[in-house]
Protein backbone atom coordinates (compact mmCIF):
# COMPACT_ATOMS: atom_id res chain seq x y z
CA UNK A 1 0.00 0.00 0.00
CA UNK A 2 1.33 3.37 -0.91
CA UNK A 3 0.86 6.27 1.46
CA UNK A 4 1.81 9.00 -0.95
CA UNK A 5 0.34 7.74 -4.18
CA UNK A 6 -3.20 6.46 -3.98
CA UNK A 7 -3.59 3.50 -6.21
CA UNK A 8 0.10 2.99 -6.86
CA UNK A 9 0.53 -0.75 -6.80
CA UNK A 10 3.46 -1.61 -4.58
CA UNK A 11 5.13 -4.73 -3.43
CA UNK A 12 3.93 -8.23 -3.92
CA UNK A 13 0.35 -6.97 -3.85
CA UNK A 14 1.03 -5.65 -7.33
CA UNK A 15 0.94 -9.23 -8.46
CA UNK A 16 -2.44 -10.80 -7.89
CA UNK A 17 -1.98 -13.87 -5.78
CA UNK A 18 -4.58 -16.07 -4.20
CA UNK A 19 -4.73 -16.58 -0.46
CA UNK A 20 -3.22 -20.05 -0.51
CA UNK A 21 -0.24 -18.89 -2.56
CA UNK A 22 0.36 -16.03 -0.19
CA UNK A 23 0.09 -18.38 2.80
CA UNK A 24 2.64 -20.73 1.25
CA UNK A 25 4.94 -17.84 0.35
CA UNK A 26 4.74 -16.55 3.92
CA UNK A 27 6.15 -19.81 5.24
CA UNK A 28 8.64 -20.20 2.44
CA UNK A 29 9.87 -16.73 3.27
CA UNK A 30 10.25 -17.52 6.96
CA UNK A 31 12.03 -20.82 6.35
CA UNK A 32 14.36 -19.06 3.92
CA UNK A 33 15.12 -16.38 6.47
CA UNK A 34 15.72 -18.97 9.18
CA UNK A 35 18.23 -20.73 6.95
CA UNK A 36 19.89 -17.42 6.08
CA UNK A 37 20.28 -16.67 9.78
CA UNK A 38 21.81 -20.10 10.30
CA UNK A 39 24.31 -19.17 7.61
CA UNK A 40 25.08 -15.92 9.44
CA UNK A 41 25.94 -17.90 12.55
CA UNK A 42 28.20 -20.06 10.41
CA UNK A 43 29.97 -16.92 9.16
CA UNK A 44 30.93 -15.82 12.67
CA UNK A 45 31.83 -19.16 14.24
CA UNK A 46 33.95 -17.85 17.11
CA UNK A 47 31.49 -15.51 18.77
CA UNK A 48 28.53 -17.78 18.02
CA UNK A 49 30.26 -20.82 19.51
CA UNK A 50 31.16 -18.83 22.60
CA UNK A 51 27.57 -17.73 23.08
CA UNK A 52 26.26 -21.26 22.53
CA UNK A 53 28.82 -22.53 25.07
CA UNK A 54 27.73 -19.97 27.67
CA UNK A 55 24.12 -20.95 27.06
CA UNK A 56 24.88 -24.66 27.29
CA UNK A 57 26.92 -24.45 30.48
CA UNK A 58 24.52 -22.01 32.15
CA UNK A 59 21.52 -24.21 31.53
CA UNK A 60 23.36 -27.35 32.66
CA UNK A 61 23.31 -26.37 36.34
CA UNK A 62 19.54 -25.93 36.73
CA UNK A 63 18.94 -29.03 34.63
CA UNK A 64 21.31 -31.03 36.86
CA UNK A 65 19.54 -29.79 39.98
CA UNK A 66 16.21 -30.69 38.43
CA UNK A 67 17.38 -34.24 37.72
CA UNK A 68 18.72 -34.47 41.27
CA UNK A 69 15.34 -33.48 42.71
CA UNK A 70 13.61 -35.92 40.40
CA UNK A 71 15.82 -38.81 41.49
CA UNK A 72 15.57 -37.94 45.18
CA UNK A 73 11.81 -37.87 44.86
CA UNK A 74 11.94 -41.29 43.31
CA UNK A 75 13.92 -42.55 46.32
CA UNK A 76 11.54 -41.02 48.83
CA UNK A 77 8.45 -42.25 47.06
CA UNK A 78 9.75 -45.79 46.78
CA UNK A 79 10.28 -45.78 50.54
CA UNK A 80 6.96 -44.14 51.17
CA UNK A 81 5.29 -47.06 49.42
CA UNK A 82 6.71 -49.39 52.03
CA UNK A 83 5.60 -47.32 54.99
CA UNK A 84 4.41 -49.75 57.63
CA UNK A 85 3.09 -49.30 61.11
CA UNK A 86 4.54 -51.60 63.73
CA UNK A 87 2.20 -52.45 66.60
CA UNK A 88 3.97 -53.84 69.65
CA UNK A 89 1.42 -55.74 71.71
CA UNK A 90 1.17 -55.88 75.46
CA UNK A 91 3.13 -58.75 76.95
CA UNK A 92 0.11 -60.49 78.44
CA UNK A 93 -1.92 -60.63 75.23
CA UNK A 94 -3.21 -64.14 74.56
CA UNK A 95 -4.01 -66.00 71.36
CA UNK A 96 -7.74 -65.24 71.24
CA UNK A 97 -7.08 -61.58 71.86
CA UNK A 98 -4.56 -61.59 69.03
CA UNK A 99 -7.04 -63.24 66.67
CA UNK A 100 -9.62 -60.67 67.72
CA UNK A 101 -7.23 -57.82 66.98
CA UNK A 102 -6.26 -59.25 63.59
CA UNK A 103 -9.94 -59.55 62.64
CA UNK A 104 -10.53 -56.01 63.80
CA UNK A 105 -7.62 -54.63 61.81
CA UNK A 106 -8.56 -56.53 58.68
CA UNK A 107 -12.05 -55.07 58.91
CA UNK A 108 -10.61 -51.52 59.06
CA UNK A 109 -11.03 -49.88 55.64
CA UNK A 110 -7.80 -47.91 56.11
CA UNK A 111 -5.71 -51.05 56.40
CA UNK A 112 -4.31 -52.79 53.36
CA UNK A 113 -2.57 -55.69 54.96
CA UNK A 114 -1.85 -57.13 58.39
CA UNK A 115 1.11 -59.35 59.13
CA UNK A 116 1.50 -60.99 62.52
CA UNK A 117 4.94 -61.86 63.89
CA UNK A 118 4.85 -64.20 66.85
CA UNK A 119 7.35 -63.30 69.56
CA UNK A 120 8.94 -66.75 69.37
CA UNK A 121 9.36 -66.42 65.65
CA UNK A 122 10.77 -62.92 66.11
CA UNK A 123 13.30 -64.17 68.63
CA UNK A 124 14.44 -66.93 66.30
CA UNK A 125 14.88 -64.46 63.46
CA UNK A 126 16.69 -62.00 65.64
CA UNK A 127 18.97 -64.70 67.04
CA UNK A 128 19.84 -65.83 63.57
CA UNK A 129 20.47 -62.39 62.05
CA UNK A 130 21.85 -60.24 64.81
CA UNK A 131 24.83 -62.36 65.77
CA UNK A 132 23.84 -62.26 69.43
CA UNK A 133 22.64 -65.88 69.30
CA UNK A 134 24.93 -67.00 72.11
CA UNK A 135 23.79 -64.23 74.41
CA UNK A 136 20.11 -65.01 73.93
CA UNK A 137 20.54 -68.56 75.02
CA UNK A 138 21.28 -67.19 78.52
CA UNK A 139 17.97 -65.37 78.73
CA UNK A 140 15.14 -67.48 80.06
CA UNK A 141 12.16 -65.42 79.11
CA UNK A 142 11.55 -64.13 75.59
CA UNK A 143 11.92 -60.34 76.03
CA UNK A 144 10.33 -59.56 72.68
CA UNK A 145 6.67 -58.61 72.28
CA UNK A 146 4.29 -59.89 69.63
CA UNK A 147 4.39 -57.57 66.66
CA UNK A 148 1.85 -56.71 64.00
CA UNK A 149 2.93 -55.05 60.82
CA UNK A 150 0.10 -52.97 59.43
CA UNK A 151 0.35 -51.59 55.88
CA UNK A 152 -1.90 -48.60 55.45
CA UNK A 153 -3.98 -48.35 52.30
CA UNK A 154 -3.06 -44.72 51.80
CA UNK A 155 0.73 -44.54 52.04
CA UNK A 156 1.08 -40.74 52.22
CA UNK A 157 2.76 -39.76 55.46
CA UNK A 158 -0.24 -37.72 56.56
CA UNK A 159 -2.76 -40.56 56.19
CA UNK A 160 -0.34 -43.03 57.70
CA UNK A 161 0.18 -40.96 60.81
CA UNK A 162 -3.59 -40.51 61.20
CA UNK A 163 -3.96 -44.27 61.11
CA UNK A 164 -1.11 -44.54 63.60
CA UNK A 165 -2.96 -42.32 66.04
CA UNK A 166 -6.08 -44.46 65.70
CA UNK A 167 -4.22 -47.72 66.22
CA UNK A 168 -2.48 -46.40 69.32
CA UNK A 169 -5.88 -46.40 71.01
CA UNK A 170 -6.37 -50.16 70.54
CA UNK A 171 -6.70 -52.07 73.77
CA UNK A 172 -3.91 -54.63 73.32
CA UNK A 173 -1.41 -52.27 71.78
CA UNK A 174 1.48 -51.29 74.00
CA UNK A 175 3.27 -49.14 71.48
CA UNK A 176 2.71 -48.14 67.86
CA UNK A 177 5.45 -46.81 65.64
CA UNK A 178 5.58 -45.34 62.21
CA UNK A 179 9.07 -44.49 61.12
CA UNK A 180 8.37 -41.46 58.97
CA UNK A 181 10.53 -38.88 60.72
CA UNK A 182 13.45 -39.33 58.39
CA UNK A 183 11.11 -39.50 55.41
CA UNK A 184 9.78 -36.09 56.33
CA UNK A 185 13.31 -34.83 56.63
CA UNK A 186 14.14 -36.20 53.18
CA UNK A 187 11.05 -34.55 51.77
CA UNK A 188 12.10 -31.26 53.32
CA UNK A 189 15.58 -31.55 51.84
CA UNK A 190 14.14 -32.36 48.42
CA UNK A 191 11.90 -29.32 48.50
CA UNK A 192 14.83 -27.18 49.65
CA UNK A 193 16.95 -28.42 46.75
CA UNK A 194 14.05 -27.76 44.41
CA UNK A 195 13.75 -24.18 45.58
CA UNK A 196 17.49 -23.63 45.31
CA UNK A 197 17.27 -25.05 41.79
CA UNK A 198 14.50 -22.61 40.90
CA UNK A 199 16.43 -19.63 42.26
CA UNK A 200 19.60 -20.71 40.44
CA UNK A 201 17.65 -21.36 37.27
CA UNK A 202 16.06 -17.92 37.41
CA UNK A 203 19.41 -16.19 37.88
CA UNK A 204 21.09 -18.18 35.13
CA UNK A 205 18.21 -17.57 32.75
CA UNK A 206 18.61 -13.84 33.26
CA UNK A 207 22.33 -14.24 32.59
CA UNK A 208 21.60 -16.19 29.40
CA UNK A 209 19.13 -13.53 28.29
CA UNK A 210 21.78 -10.84 28.73
CA UNK A 211 24.48 -12.88 26.99
CA UNK A 212 22.29 -13.54 23.95
CA UNK A 213 21.21 -9.91 23.96
CA UNK A 214 24.80 -8.76 23.96
CA UNK A 215 25.81 -11.12 21.16
CA UNK A 216 22.94 -9.91 19.00
CA UNK A 217 23.76 -6.30 19.85
CA UNK A 218 27.31 -6.79 18.59
CA UNK A 219 25.97 -8.41 15.42
CA UNK A 220 23.70 -5.41 14.88
CA UNK A 221 26.58 -3.01 15.36
CA UNK A 222 28.78 -4.82 12.83
CA UNK A 223 25.92 -4.62 10.34
CA UNK A 224 25.15 -0.99 11.07
CA UNK A 225 25.93 0.17 7.53
CA UNK A 226 23.80 -2.54 5.99
CA UNK A 227 20.88 -1.71 8.28
CA UNK A 228 21.20 1.96 7.40
CA UNK A 229 21.00 1.17 3.68
CA UNK A 230 17.98 -1.05 4.26
CA UNK A 231 16.26 1.75 6.14
CA UNK A 232 17.03 4.15 3.30
CA UNK A 233 15.33 1.93 0.75
CA UNK A 234 12.26 1.53 2.92
CA UNK A 235 12.72 -1.48 5.16
CA UNK A 236 10.57 -1.47 8.30
CA UNK A 237 12.12 -2.15 11.69
CA UNK A 238 10.31 -5.44 11.96
CA UNK A 239 11.73 -6.53 8.60
CA UNK A 240 15.26 -5.64 9.69
CA UNK A 241 14.99 -7.30 13.08
CA UNK A 242 13.58 -10.60 11.82
CA UNK A 243 16.90 -12.23 10.86
CA UNK A 244 18.37 -11.27 14.23
CA UNK A 245 15.43 -12.90 16.00
CA UNK A 246 16.04 -16.05 14.01
CA UNK A 247 19.71 -15.91 14.97
CA UNK A 248 18.64 -15.72 18.62
CA UNK A 249 16.39 -18.73 18.16
CA UNK A 250 19.20 -20.72 16.59
CA UNK A 251 21.62 -19.77 19.37
CA UNK A 252 19.03 -20.92 21.91
CA UNK A 253 18.44 -24.17 20.05
CA UNK A 254 22.13 -25.04 19.86
CA UNK A 255 22.59 -24.00 23.49
CA UNK A 256 19.80 -26.39 24.48
CA UNK A 257 21.34 -29.23 22.49
CA UNK A 258 24.70 -28.54 24.12
CA UNK A 259 23.08 -28.62 27.57
CA UNK A 260 21.57 -31.99 26.76
CA UNK A 261 24.93 -33.36 25.64
CA UNK A 262 26.75 -32.06 28.73
CA UNK A 263 24.00 -33.53 30.91
CA UNK A 264 24.27 -36.95 29.28
CA UNK A 265 28.04 -36.87 29.71
CA UNK A 266 27.62 -35.92 33.36
CA UNK A 267 25.12 -38.73 34.01
CA UNK A 268 27.38 -41.26 32.32
CA UNK A 269 30.26 -40.08 34.45
CA UNK A 270 28.27 -40.15 37.69
CA UNK A 271 26.64 -43.50 37.03
CA UNK A 272 29.52 -45.52 38.43
CA UNK A 273 29.87 -43.41 41.54
CA UNK A 274 26.13 -43.63 42.20
CA UNK A 275 26.11 -47.36 41.68
CA UNK A 276 28.84 -47.64 44.33
CA UNK A 277 26.72 -45.75 46.84
CA UNK A 278 23.49 -47.61 46.10
CA UNK A 279 25.20 -50.96 46.38
CA UNK A 280 26.28 -50.03 49.90
CA UNK A 281 22.63 -49.35 50.74
CA UNK A 282 21.51 -52.53 49.01
CA UNK A 283 19.05 -50.44 47.10
CA UNK A 284 17.72 -51.16 43.66
CA UNK A 285 17.92 -47.47 42.84
CA UNK A 286 18.61 -46.64 39.22
CA UNK A 287 19.48 -43.19 37.96
CA UNK A 288 16.65 -41.63 35.96
CA UNK A 289 17.98 -39.87 32.84
CA UNK A 290 16.32 -36.94 31.11
CA UNK A 291 13.03 -37.96 29.52
CA UNK A 292 11.98 -36.97 26.03
CA UNK A 293 9.41 -34.53 27.43
CA UNK A 294 12.07 -32.93 29.60
CA UNK A 295 14.36 -32.57 26.60
CA UNK A 296 11.46 -30.88 24.84
CA UNK A 297 10.96 -28.46 27.72
CA UNK A 298 14.69 -27.75 27.85
CA UNK A 299 14.77 -26.90 24.14
CA UNK A 300 11.64 -24.79 24.49
CA UNK A 301 13.15 -22.82 27.37
CA UNK A 302 16.49 -22.43 25.57
CA UNK A 303 14.84 -21.28 22.35
CA UNK A 304 12.61 -18.78 24.12
CA UNK A 305 15.61 -17.44 26.01
CA UNK A 306 17.40 -16.98 22.69
CA UNK A 307 14.36 -15.33 21.17
CA UNK A 308 13.67 -12.93 24.02
CA UNK A 309 17.36 -12.12 24.51
CA UNK A 310 17.58 -11.12 20.89
CA UNK A 311 14.25 -9.26 21.04
CA UNK A 312 15.73 -7.24 23.91
CA UNK A 313 18.69 -6.30 21.74
CA UNK A 314 16.83 -5.52 18.50
CA UNK A 315 14.20 -3.43 20.26
CA UNK A 316 16.87 -1.21 21.75
CA UNK A 317 19.35 -1.06 18.92
CA UNK A 318 17.66 -1.25 15.54
CA UNK A 319 15.38 1.73 16.04
CA UNK A 320 18.39 3.70 17.24
CA UNK A 321 20.23 3.26 13.96
CA UNK A 322 18.81 6.06 11.89
CA UNK A 323 19.37 6.53 8.24
CA UNK A 324 21.78 9.43 8.01
CA UNK A 325 21.91 8.87 4.31
CA UNK A 326 22.72 11.59 1.91
Amino acid sequence: MSILFQGRATGATAVKQNLWNRFVMFWVHHVRQAITSLGEIWLTPASSLLTVAVLGVSLTLPVTLHLMVKNLQQVSSSIDQAAQISLFLKADTNETQIAELIALLQANPEVADVQFIDKGQALAEFTAESGFGEAFSYIEDNPLPHVMLVSPKNTSSLAASALLDALKQERYVELAKLDIGWLERLDAIVSLVRQVAMAVALLLMIAVLLVVGNTIRLMILTKKDEIEVMKLVGATNSYIQRPFLYTGIWLGFFGGILTFLIEELLLWWLKHAIRGVTQLYESSFSLQPMSLAELGYLLLVAISLGFFGSLLAVRRNISQIEATGL
Partner: peptide, 23 residues
Protein backbone atom coordinates in the same frame (compact mmCIF):
# COMPACT_ATOMS: atom_id res chain seq x y z
CA UNK B 1 3.47 10.75 8.31
CA UNK B 2 4.36 9.00 11.56
CA UNK B 3 7.51 7.07 12.38
CA UNK B 4 6.04 3.72 11.46
CA UNK B 5 4.96 4.98 8.03
CA UNK B 6 8.36 6.41 7.08
CA UNK B 7 9.58 3.16 5.43
CA UNK B 8 6.48 3.08 3.21
CA UNK B 9 7.07 6.69 2.12
CA UNK B 10 10.66 5.86 1.22
CA UNK B 11 9.44 3.04 -1.01
CA UNK B 12 7.73 5.66 -3.16
CA UNK B 13 10.91 7.68 -3.58
CA UNK B 14 13.93 6.43 -5.49
CA UNK B 15 17.06 7.75 -3.81
CA UNK B 16 20.55 7.89 -5.28
CA UNK B 17 23.48 8.70 -3.04
CA UNK B 18 26.83 10.27 -3.72
CA UNK B 19 28.67 7.42 -1.98
CA UNK B 20 26.37 4.83 -3.59
CA UNK B 21 25.38 3.17 -0.29
CA UNK B 22 25.68 -0.31 -1.74
CA UNK B 23 25.98 -3.49 0.31
Amino acid sequence: VNRGQVPYVRRDIGMIFQNHKLL
